[in-house]
Each structure stands twice: as C-alpha cells, then as structure tokens.
C-alpha cells in the first residue's frame, strides 16, 4: 500500500471535469484507489464519490493506492494533481 498527500491546485477545485479525469485514470489500474479527506474516505474509482468530496482549491487530501501496480498508479495520479488535471503535454 502506498499513500501520498496532495493539494488541489485547480482554481475551481476538483469539479466535474477534473473528477472525471481522475476517475478515468484510476480505473486503468488494477490497484484499489481511495481518497481520504477531512475524515471521509471515498473510492477514487467512483465518480459520484469523488464528486461528493466537493474539494475546492487548496483542499488537501491523501491518496491511498493498494495493489499490484500501485507504484505506477500513484505516480500517474499525483501527476494529475500537479498538472491541474490538464492532459500531459505530448
């Protein structure tokens, strides 16, 4: 199991589109993915779960990845937060 703390850098928070990108990315990996925020824990592959976090800009959260491809998954997911969920430059 791997964990990492991240901050939402997007000005408008983790709204519908970034949430969708996050879930889509997470779903490509076999590992389980959870997000912990303010004592809540949601399944990071669940779009509705991620949306109910309603994370705004500056929100801090802990990403928890557990499974065979956890290293790669965590790296990709952290990147998304760092790039403000913009698609990586080609």
């Amino acid at each position: 199991m791997k964990t990492k703390k991240v901050t939402v850098l997007n000005e408008s928070g983790l709204h519908a589109r970034p949430a969708s990108v996050l879930v889509k990315t997470a779903s490509r990996f076999k590992s389980e993915f959870y997000i912990k925020m303010y004592g809540y824990k949601v399944n990071g592959k669940s779009i509705l779960g991620v949306m109910t976090l309603a994370a705004e800009a500056g929100a801090e959260m802990e990403l928890i990845v557990d499974g065979p491809d956890e290293d790669e998954a965590l790296e990709k997911l952290v990147k998304l937060f760092e790039n403000k969920f913009n698609p990586a430059p080609p």
């Binding site: 519908a16 589109r17 969708s20 889509k24 592959k45 779009i47 509705l48 779960g49």
Partner: peptide, 16 residues
C-alpha cells in the same frame, strides 16, 4: 461529448 461521458462514467460507477 464530455457531458455524456460523465453520465456514462456515473452509470459505470463501481461503488454505486
């Protein structure tokens, strides 16, 4: 397309 994709994603939501 993005809106429709979001709806499909919700239909496939594993928790739900």
């Amino acid at each position: 397309v993005e809106i429709i994709d979001a709806q499909i994603q919700a239909l496939n939501d594993p928790e739900v």
